[in-house]
């Protein structure tokens, strides 16, 4: 396989080729659209958090990234190679924990990993026992290695799955809900492992519903809602841009909202004023619009919020979300385009 990239962005710098990229991804299951029009970009070296409510298409997108699911339409490029043709070359460098750990209940943790290791192309037979031992050590399962998987707690199962993803040094690690079922100590361990991977230059894609988790560990974020990416970019940029709302105190709430909506600026009425979303506009523009419309403005104040607010705003309010035009979404920073 020549490994030529489909998108023609062959460049000398590693950063120019994203660890994973999808274009126009769409998946229809028996007439139900699970994922549509997903253009995801995972920059090399990033820790990308995938956020989204249940059923937003996170897992389906991850499965398509790994070549497990054939997209109905669109393209996937993994480590610079197009899928499915390049799967044999890129997948050995990808570790994955998808939809919970899949292991045989009647085998011990070590036997299960030995079996997973047997399928790893980048592991020579002589190195398998050592690699399995190291992986078990790394996730803190060495003491329970010889117990049957059936008897493992949910957290232990999750760790074994992580160990399977880390059997070989990887360039990309994809973790679907890795902290599921873990106690706080376990969650901290996973965070440490992700930090280690990041420090070693490994790209990490992690899906989670724990926003604090993502906020603490990720460099990048992609938010999915109803099967499509509603926002993605560097975490800092998103928080900056996304948290920007403008609180405007005015007695003429109705007139203010109408005036802004006439200019396609999303706004919501509050008790004594309005809240304006700044993702598609700027504060001076809002003030100018209101003043031109003759709305009295008593006070204008910027409000800063965390990821949780951003997430809530992007996924829980269909009116506002619909008003965001994904193609011109300023939430997507230019450098990742």
């Amino acid at each position: 396989m020549s490994g030529s990239t489909e998108f023609g962005t062959v460049a000398g710098s590693p950063a120019a080729v994203p660890a994973a990229r999808t274009r126009g991804l769409r998946k229809v299951y028996r007439g139900t659209v699970a994922v549509d029009n997903v253009d995801l970009e995972v920059p090399t070296g990033a820790v990308l958090g995938m956020l989204g409510p249940n059923g937003s298409g996170k897992t389906t997108t991850i499965r398509m990234l790994l070549g497990l699911v054939t997209p109905t339409a669109g393209e996937v490029e993994l480590l610079g190679r197009k899928l499915p043709e390049g799967a044999a070359e890129s997948l050995p460098e990808v570790g994955a924990l998808v939809e919970g750990p899949g292991f045989h209940p009647f085998l011990s943790g070590r036997e299960n990993l030995l079996r997973a290791a047997a399928a790893e192309p980048h592991l020579s037979t002589s190195r398998i026992p050592a690699a399995v031992g190291a992986a078990l050590e790394r996730v803190g399962l060495a003491h329970a290695a010889n117990r049957r998987f059936r008897g493992y707690s949910l957290g232990m199962k999750q760790r074994l799955g992580l160990a399977g993803a880390l059997l070989v040094p990887r360039r990309l690690v994809v973790l679907d809900e890795p902290t599921n079922g873990l106690d706080p100590a376990g969650t901290r361990e996973i965070r440490t492992i992700m930090a280690d991977l990041h420090a070693a230059g490994t790209t990490v894609v992690v899906s989670s519903h724990l926003l604090a988790e993502v906020e603490a560990t990720c460099t990048h974020v992609a938010v999915l809602n109803q099967g499509t990416v509603v926002a993605q970019g560097e975490l800092a940029d998103l928080l900056d841009a996304g948290s920007a709302t403008l609180l405007v105190s005015t007695p003429e709430v109705e007139a203010a909202v109408d005036a802004l909506r006439d200019h396609r600026i999303p706004a919501r009425s509050l008790a004594e004023g309005i809240r304006v979303d700044l993702t598609a506009t700027t504060a001076p523009e809002v003030v100018e619009t209101l003043v031109k419309a003759g709305v009295p403005v008593h006070e204008v104040r910027r409000q800063r919020t965390g990821l949780e607010d951003l997430f809530a705003r992007l996924t829980e309010d269909p009116v506002d979300a619909a008003e965001l035009d994904p193609t011109s979404d300023p939430l997507v920073p230019q450098e990742t385009r």
Binding site: G67, L68, P92, A96, G102, F103, E120
Partner: peptide
Amino acid sequence: NGTLRGLLVAPV
């Protein structure tokens, strides 16, 4: 069991 998936991403 989910074990088939593990082999597919190995990849086999």
